[in-house]
Design a protein around this nucleic acid. Sequence first.
DNA 1: CTGTTAGCGCTTTCAT
DNA 2: ATGAAAGCGCTAACAG
Lengths: 404, 404
Amino acid sequence: MTDQTRASQMTQDQPDQPRPSRRRASRLIDIAEAVGVHTSTVSRVLNGDPAQSVRPEVYEKIWRTARQQGYRPNALARALKRRRTGALAFVIPLLRNPIWVRLQRGALQRASERGYVVMIMEEPGDDPQPPASYRYLVEESRADGLLLATSLRIPAHADGGSLGRLTPVPHVYVNRRGPERGNDVVMDEPGAVRLLVDHVAGLGHRSVALIDGPSAVDTVHRREMAARRICAGRGIQLTVLHADATEEGGWAATQRLLHRGAPDHSAPDHRAPDHRAPDHRAPDHRAPDHRAPPTVCAVGSLNQLFGVMAALRAAGLAVPADMSVVSLDEDECLAFLDVPVTSVAMPLAELGSAAVDALIARIEQGEPGEPGEPGDVMIREPMSLVLRQSVAGPPAGRPGQRGR
Amino acid sequence: MTDQTRASQMTQDQPDQPRPSRRRASRLIDIAEAVGVHTSTVSRVLNGDPAQSVRPEVYEKIWRTARQQGYRPNALARALKRRRTGALAFVIPLLRNPIWVRLQRGALQRASERGYVVMIMEEPGDDPQPPASYRYLVEESRADGLLLATSLRIPAHADGGSLGRLTPVPHVYVNRRGPERGNDVVMDEPGAVRLLVDHVAGLGHRSVALIDGPSAVDTVHRREMAARRICAGRGIQLTVLHADATEEGGWAATQRLLHRGAPDHSAPDHRAPDHRAPDHRAPDHRAPDHRAPPTVCAVGSLNQLFGVMAALRAAGLAVPADMSVVSLDEDECLAFLDVPVTSVAMPLAELGSAAVDALIARIEQGEPGEPGEPGDVMIREPMSLVLRQSVAGPPAGRPGQRGR
DNA sequence: CTGTTAGCGCTTTCAT
DNA sequence: ATGAAAGCGCTAACAG
């Protein structure tokens, strides 16, 4: 079949050298013939079919020849027959954020334990697709189900259940909530926020700022809601600032925060070293703001954190003397910054592994919806505060206040 | 087949609700029947078989029904028949390093342009497997070929060509050189080193240190060789320090560098903030070292860079006044560090995309080796120096020297 | 121009 | 305890 190809290549020297063996992979039938039994027997033996037993001698012989022929079941043929590929697709928004790395690792690990392979797809950064646009992976039988960590918080109406229409596509939303209930695997964001707030409240802080990604991102939204509730309950003032989940974004948000309540816009041009810092949110319509200025910045992502620290530094604010900082994203590098940054470490690997379990449950149960309803899962693994040097009590003498 | 499963779930209320349609995906034969032609005709039309034409009316009708049935070719069946899966496997060592992220992006992008999907596999960090251990992906027909970026520099003898034995497995080494020649896709590391050395040499530096990963990593090895050659050629002293490609490693290597030639080991305990800093290399047997102390640190990876900066800071050395620093890994966050760090930006995305092209060439040519030999590829895209504030001339008055 | 025929490699009743 | 037969969904000769 590939004769023309081969022919065009054979007109070469060394025509008698041991030609790169073109022998194709060993098949079930090769073993069957070698052993002198039928393929179905080989199949049963190799798959450890518990139903019936085989004569110990054939059993032995089959395994032996399989091993010596280096037999590998053809995943394609098997999948075609079994109607199951043994692959999961994991759709990730922006590979650059380290949280996905950890999450991925947990997922990969667990999937392989359960006999699945994971194919990772990166959502094109420029135009985020709705989750339904990954249906094709299942419809084309490339994967049995979808792990969705797409960037946008999916409005209930927009994509409402279209993922499970027609051919029901097994899927779970990872670290996000999808439009329909019952397919979400998330962490305890409120718990993380509470840990953080309790920590700084205990130190005497009375006003905190939360700098996080766009509120269209579900995690961000959940953190914001939790923060509002918790701070209200503890009588702590909260200022929320949304910005891109980038260094730039963190920088810009911090600028906004620092210039809050400062009606003179004549502040020196605090710009990021070699970038422009576009202001993404509509101008703060409640400015000038007379609330107590925050003495703590909680930052939603590592990337933003770099921008926040830089902006604080540029404004001449010392951390933690003038401003405490906490990252909601743990990373090894935090320990090595000029001011080592305290963070909340989330159970990311557990999230990844739980998501895989949840997805496999949906795949293997066959019929979706209804009874035995898998339901949403919230990772119960405890998060922890990684104490470093970016948090202290509020600036001396003015608990909860900070001078200009 | 899934009857028992389903049955156990049917004993529920709402037995009359529009049960989640179990209709399975539309097949070729469904379209054929709807249109009233044979499946082969449908197949030809849908695949745009250039050989023959069809009556425009059937052509139209086929496309129309295909679209309205939401037809998706079953990748499994197709692959089984065509003996090609349309998938590539990308084996990556440690997802945490940002360079793989960029590389991945380039690869994903290009692969999808060429009609392939990429499944990413992460090599278990603890015990790196030899590349040959990923053969199974091809042998089981899960992928058509392998993009290998495994962590270890493969000794020529160890794995000698075993990847192409028996069933020849199409593969390329990405950013690495494999045991056999002809399957490597790499960047111009010497060029990067030259760019860096020329830059600092032009500023008057005469002694530079290269802090990089373990020399078992191929990139590291190539950079070291290039650095030795180039520095020798320019009369510049070079000190090479290997350490783990982590923050810890960078910290430890810097310690070693700073204590070089200081026979008194009574130096204060410069330890990383909250880690131990194990010394990985055998003690420097040529100590005490009387060469001119380096006035520039070139750092091989972003993770190490954090450790290097921290160690310099802890030692009371100002950057760039006392020591210039250059990262061989560009990343947005470098612009936001307390001292923004100059770096060499490598064409990572191009590398990823070139690797995909190279692999596809090997896959589609059928017969490996011999004529039309694809050969190694070196990415020609230019790298560039991203100038920030971590580089200055050598400490005043002592060109190329630095005080203790 | 289009239908027939034969599988790809494997699993799975159903016989024996 | 094992073989026969059917078929997953698609493609590719080869006929007409």
